[in-house]
Amino acid sequence: MPKEDTNTTRALRGLENGSASVRLQAVLAAGTAPDPRFVDKLVERCAVEPDFYVRDMLTWALTRHAPSLTVPKLIGELRSERAQARSQALHTLSKIGDRRAWPAITRALLTDADDEVARTAWRAAVVLVPEGEESELAAALATQLGRGERETQLSLSRALIALGAVVTPILRAAMADPDPGVRRHAIATERLSRNPDAGFEFAIEEAKRIVALGTTGREE
């Protein structure tokens, strides 16, 4: 058996090993010497890998392979019932940056019931959105204002801010939303966009005060 085939077989077997360090080395080998035979197993492993560092390396290894091989497989994972499969596929697609994946970033993913999937979808969408479709994406993201805990809200704020000026009218409209949670999040996002150095905690506390006073916080 040629040495290349032996190395490939060893790496593929290593991906199933019970030791995270062995799996990490196997993924490193798969990324260092890309081979189309790795792609299916790397994608499959993304859905079930429990170790954060190994998952991160899986994404790196997949970015080392041809997008023509990886992108269709990853898009297929977005329909998985397993939340980790969806979130890891979204993360990897954002790192590959191939805009052919854009149509697969559906509203269902942007509003996924799993916070980690939704957050990863927001980040991926901002990376992959075609020029001219930013406003539509911003409007879809704005439907999630007020959702979740601080970490989730910060992820959404960052995604909205990354879309640029198109979010300004959307945030201003949300500042008058009947839901105080939506109003607070919209105000905090607008504050953070104007003063990133202040930090999200400061912005959200300021937003709470503004909502408590019954104003929108808009500066004309």
Rank of each mutant, 00 (worst) to 15 (best):
L160D: 00
R158E: 12
V117T: 15
L128F: 03
A188C: 03
V211N: 07
A113S: 14
F202Y: 13
P169E: 01
E133P: 01
R194L: 14
G146C: 08
E205L: 15
V182E: 01
D179T: 12
A173V: 04
K208P: 10
L171Q: 09
I161L: 01
I204N: 05
R194Q: 14
L160M: 14
A198P: 01
R107G: 09
E131I: 08
T111W: 15
A138K: 05
D115N: 14
L160Q: 05
G148H: 02
A162V: 10
R172S: 06
S193Q: 15
S193L: 06
E201L: 13
I210S: 02
A203K: 05
A165H: 11
A165K: 13
D112S: 12
M175Y: 03
D179W: 08
R194H: 14
R158L: 08
E133W: 07
T152K: 00
R147I: 07
S193C: 09
A203L: 05
A138R: 09
A203R: 05
E201C: 09
R107C: 02
H185D: 12
P178I: 00
P178N: 11
M175I: 03
R184K: 15
A108M: 09
T189P: 11
E205N: 12
H185Q: 12
L145M: 07
T143W: 10
A108S: 14
L110V: 06
A138E: 04
L137F: 01
G164Y: 03
L154N: 00
A174F: 00
R209C: 04
V117A: 11
T120W: 10
L137Q: 08
